[in-house]
Design a protein around this nucleic acid. Structure first.
Length: 284
DNA sequence: CATTACCTGCAA
DNA sequence: TTGCAGGTAATG
């Protein structure tokens, strides 16, 4: 479900509501063994009562609640995780954790596929446990330049381009944090590069367009409150609107909005990948 | 690299 | 019934 723009949408919705509130109870729903959430959250959940939310921020697809007492709660929504204040009747069935604040206000973590994870620990420990420390730069951080992007795509010694496939690089969170399958396809389309292009064959002009496309596509997604294909909703169940503006993702067989050729779909980097062979030349 | 596993619901 | 889904880690 959620990539950078959807996670940013959630952060903007929860921050003004929960900053300043103090946890009173937190509980995992469902008994025992119920999947990965239990593994990551069961240990730290007892630390929450009494902790006040000081700040909410995002890096890549991680949501971090900085708490009093040097604690942090880190949330990764993975495919179908949602933070909800007003769960719909349908989503109530999938609530995996419940957080109640001192004033009685509640926030729920709902997750149909149970891939989502939450960590609670001392801030440093939480960031280490969840892997947030290993993320590459978030492209929407102040000052992420075309030069920075070019630097990422260089090999370790800076002597030549990193090898590999463009789409894999865009999806690699250790390289750049926050891009997922939908926006990777949209970015390649806007940059007019075939997602199977080899990194080492990209020219400076390609990298410049790629940089512009990354910022543009992510910003537009945020501006439209995220993309809802089937599951993504905000804290009160609202869908995003960006699905109306997608140029290439999910448009298999439909005419390319730029040239009219049918949009192709094939599997790349293990993910369904959409592109226009006419508008997106392959650098091979 | 590609493939599989982790889960569940839904459309084909 | 099968295959697919916005994510990621583990495995070959």
């Amino acid at each position: 479900m959620p990539e950078l723009p959807e996670v940013e949408t959630v952060v903007r919705q929860i921050a003004p509501v929960i900053v300043g509130r103090t946890f009173k109870h937190a509980l995992l729903r469902g008994k025992g063994k119920q999947g990965v959430l239990h593994q990551t959250l069961s240990r730290g959940i007892s630390l929450l009562p009494g902790a006040t939310v000081l700040e909410v921020y995002r890096k890549g697809k991680f949501i971090v609640l900085r708490l009093s007492g040097g604690l942090a709660m880190v949330v990764h929504l993975r495919m179908t995780g949602m933070l909800l204040f007003e769960p719909s009747a349908r989503l109530k069935k999938f609530i995996r954790a419940e957080f109640r604040f001192g004033d009685g206000f509640k926030m729920y973590f709902s997750d149909i596929r149970r891939f989502g994870r939450i960590w609670v620990a001392d801030e440093r420990e939480a960031i280490r446990l969840c892997g947030l420390g290993r993320l590459g730069p978030d492209p929407l951080e102040e000052g992420f330049s075309a030069k920075d992007l070019a630097g990422l795509l260089m090999d370790g010694r800076g002597t030549g381009r990193r090898r590999g496939i463009l789409k894999s690089a865009l999806l690699n969170q250790q390289l750049i944090a926050g891009i997922g399958n939908i926006y990777a396809d949209e970015i390649c389309f806007r940059a007019r590069l075939h997602p199977r292009s080899r990194l080492e064959k990209l020219r400076q002009s390609d990298l410049d367009r790629l940089h512009e496309a990354i910022l543009y596509c992510l910003d537009e997604g945020i501006r439209h409150n995220g993309t809802t294909i089937s599951d993504f909703v905000g804290t009160r169940g609202e869908a995003g609107e960006h699905q109306q503006y997608l140029c290439i993702y999910g448009r298999k067989g439909k005419p390319c909005c730029r040239c009219g050729q049918p949009v192709r779909k094939r599997t790349l980097a293990g993910r369904g990948t959409h592109f226009c062979i006419n508008c997106q030349p392959l650098r091979k």
